[in-house]
Design a protein around this nucleic acid. Structure first.
Lengths: 166, 166
DNA sequence: AGAATCATGGATAAATTCTATCCACGAATT
DNA sequence: AATTCGTGGATAGAATTTATCCATGATTCT
């Protein structure tokens, strides 16, 4: 069981976008540069997030990505599902119905108990992810040596964010 | 995020072994035949389970596998960890410290908030798995058409289980 | 209007992980 | 002593993940 690295990049991208001024955007290439991957690759995830309504796009020069809705309305679960897909990690292959000497299918109307237990655990996992909003992650700040606080990636954002036309 | 199929085979193997009479064993080749995979492949997981103390082995002719401890003392989490390994699904790559314009390392003494949230969710997942014992799965029975109840895979077990020498 | 910039989407290649098998070895029982 | 079994290593094949490039179409700035 391993979560793809794309999920981490997606979460960080969304969190960074949440730190922008209202209306400002960040280009896909800037985000890709920050993560150290090619623009084309990161776009895969950004587009998935966009399709899920988590991000919104601004086309044209000076365009880029911004949050699609309020940070408080975006949860970690939303991001994970948008990137990884909705399929559960455990997929029952109905082993109990197979093998060289299987019981007739009529004995298996009730769902597999093992499958039920695994899915229940996964449900708990998702419930925990749904509890964390991007707004909460945004509030997760770093303390500088002079006592002030700065947002993660702030130095990078300063140079790349595109403020809205007035 | 996908759980390997080996996990499902492992869980079913343990559950089947839990249905044996006390002292009886099931050979690795019988279990492999049931799952429809080669003995060598299933052995990978059986050995992992054995190393974790979940299963015990009886060598020699008429040998095989049996439970290593009471069904009530074996949880789904034990099995999953034995097969998949203890590493968490989400591994923080400390993205915040990288990129073209990273903040100095001293700003990141506190753990990554994203990582903390993901691990917390995974902890909830594992806690749910730890709540389910093999004894509980064993109690998950199937009703036959004549009103009786039989354990899953029972017909198969009848022909392959090896009763202990007296 | 024209050119530059950007997102979209498809095709594609490399790397990693998972799945699966075979073979040689040692241990225990019949 | 021979058979049967588990152990462990080495090794392919399949599938997924990761990553990149390129062609296309839409939008905005000049």
């Amino acid at each position: 069981m391993k979560l793809s690295d794309g999920v981490e990049q997606a979460i960080h991208s969304v969190t960074m976008l949440a730190g922008l001024e209202t209306g400002a955007v960040l280009s896909a290439s800037s985000l890709a540069e920050f993560h150290g991957v090619s623009t084309s690759y990161l776009l895969k995830h950004l587009q998935a997030l966009s399709a899920a309504g988590i991000l919104a796009t601004v086309p044209g020069p000076k365009g880029g990505y911004r949050l699609g809705r309020q940070p408080g309305a975006i949860t970690l679960l939303d991001i994970v599902l948008a990137v990884e897909g909705p399929a559960p990690a455990f997929r029952c292959n109905e082993i109990r119905q197979r093998g060289p000497n299987p019981l007739p299918a009529r004995y298996f109307k009730a769902p597999c108990g093992i499958n039920a237990a695994m899915l229940k655990a996964e449900k708990a996992y998702r419930a925990e992810l749904a509890r964390v909003t991007v707004a909460a992650l945004k509030a997760d700040l770093v303390e500088t040596d002079d006592g002030g606080i700065i947002a993660r990636g702030c130095a990078f954002l300063e140079h790349h964010q595109r403020k809205p036309a007035r």
